[in-house]
Simulated scan of single mutants.
Amino acid sequence: MKQRPFARLRAPRSLAAMATAGVMALALTACGGTTKDSASNSGSGDAGSGASASANPNAPIKEGLKIAFLPKQINNPYSTIVDKSGIDAAKEYKGEAKEVGPSDASASSQVSYINTLIQQRQDAILVAANDPNAVCGPLKQARSRGIKVIAYDSDTNPDCRDIFINQASSEEVGRSQVKLLSELMDGKGEFAVLSATANATNQNTWIKFMQEELKKPEYSGMKLVKIAYGDDDDQKSFQQTQGLLQAYPNLKGIIAPTTVGIAAAARYISGSKYKGKVVVTGLGTPNQMRQFIKDGTVTKFQLWNPKDLGYLSSYAAAALASGQITGAQGETLKAGRLGERTIGANGEIVLGPPFTFEKSNIDEFDF
């Protein structure tokens, strides 16, 4: 059955603004050792400032809020779109937002940036975690100083943040990837997963649900032979694709649930003897995948609207920092043009279901 786009995913003429492909990373500047004043810390210890506070849904968003986006790595096209949208959203509520981050996606690469953001006395830190535990120590320090912590795209350990903005239900993403690949492979053959980093929370959660889905009898003709890691690096992902095809001569498909990985895999396949023989699918953006859809390398892939992910994350940060929400299940916030959103279990807000892009609809989107 053909999926229908969810309401927020519109054609470019109806989007308020287009994401640019330019580098949005700001230079990380050195700071003194000042931290949030103790008077501003309404919580206690590592539990975070929201733990003992009560929500006031009618409180206005404070003007001049300072928030910072810390992606897995800067210069990643997907992260640039997400973070720029969040930065633009901050202008709507008269806040000051920026993007900082490492150029590599290693487990500990984000730690020094969190420490600096604490010194800069940010009101909220939004982090897409490379590793769920490596960032916990400094994030707990941030929360103990009254700084709100929002995980987006890739979660931290739940004890280390106030809320998590999930781009889609993790289970739905993982299972839908297997369903799509099965459709494209006619339910038969060997396939591999080309992931980002080995410690990426979102990647590992999706892969777990892929493996659960594969246990169903309708997938008995499919076999997952390898989970490879391209570390969200274009060249390494390209080389991993080449290595998979050499190691597994009967490979019929690749799932790359990472925008860097799917583009690199498609680029390799498009110029090789495997074009038309090996299925490539996963999670990508329309603009990076358009050429591969049109030249027949890729038939279908999925994603959500990354602009909406950044936008919702920004408004959630503002709501937290303004006392409208604390992160408790059942609380609601008004997220600008996205409307009202409710916090679910474990402090999670889900953006929406994944959407399938293909030749018939890809030119309707520009991001």
Rank of each mutant, 00 (worst) to 15 (best):
S313N: 05
S144I: 03
A30G: 06
V279R: 02
Q239Y: 07
K72T: 09
A265N: 06
E348M: 15
K148P: 01
F191V: 12
N361F: 03
Q329H: 04
Q211P: 07
S360C: 04
R13I: 10
G282L: 04
K273G: 11
E96G: 04
L251A: 11
Y113W: 09
L181K: 04
I262C: 00
Y152T: 09
K140T: 02
K236S: 05
K94F: 09
T241N: 11
A128S: 15
Q291Y: 00
F357P: 01
A316N: 09
E172T: 10
W304D: 00
F367M: 10
L224K: 06
G187M: 08
A328P: 00
N204T: 03
T205A: 15
I61E: 03
G327Y: 06
N250T: 13
R290Y: 06
Y315C: 12
Q302I: 03
F357T: 01
C160P: 07
E331K: 08
G282M: 04
R337D: 11
L139F: 04
A39D: 10
I269W: 07
K91I: 03
T259L: 01
P217V: 10
Q110G: 06
R4H: 12
K84W: 08
T285N: 11
I349V: 14
N157C: 14
A316L: 08
Q177N: 13
L320C: 02
G64Q: 07
A105H: 03
I81M: 11
S38G: 14
D186E: 12
P132M: 00
I74M: 08
N75H: 05
D104N: 15
S52K: 12
P354Q: 02
S54P: 00
Q73V: 11
K300Y: 01
R4I: 14
G271M: 15
G189A: 07
D159F: 01
D234W: 13
A228Q: 11
N204D: 03
L194Y: 14
A124E: 05
P57R: 11
V225K: 14
V350Y: 14
D83P: 04
M289P: 07
N346W: 01
D233P: 05
V111A: 07
S154A: 15
E183P: 02
A200V: 12
Y315I: 14
K140S: 02
F69V: 12
A47L: 14
A59R: 04
N58A: 14
K66D: 13
V279C: 01
A51E: 13
K334M: 15
T34D: 10
K275Y: 09
D308F: 00
S313V: 05
K307Q: 12
G347V: 02
N157Q: 08
P77E: 02
Q302F: 01
V82H: 00
F301Y: 15
A318M: 09
Y268T: 12
V178G: 06
N199T: 15
D104E: 13
N130L: 10
I349C: 04
S109W: 09
E190W: 07
Q288G: 02
I293T: 03
I227T: 13
N41Y: 03
Y315K: 14
L70G: 12
V280S: 08
W304C: 01
G310V: 12
I147V: 13
L126A: 13
A25Q: 08
Q141K: 14
P286C: 04
Q246C: 09
E340T: 15
R8F: 08
T285S: 09
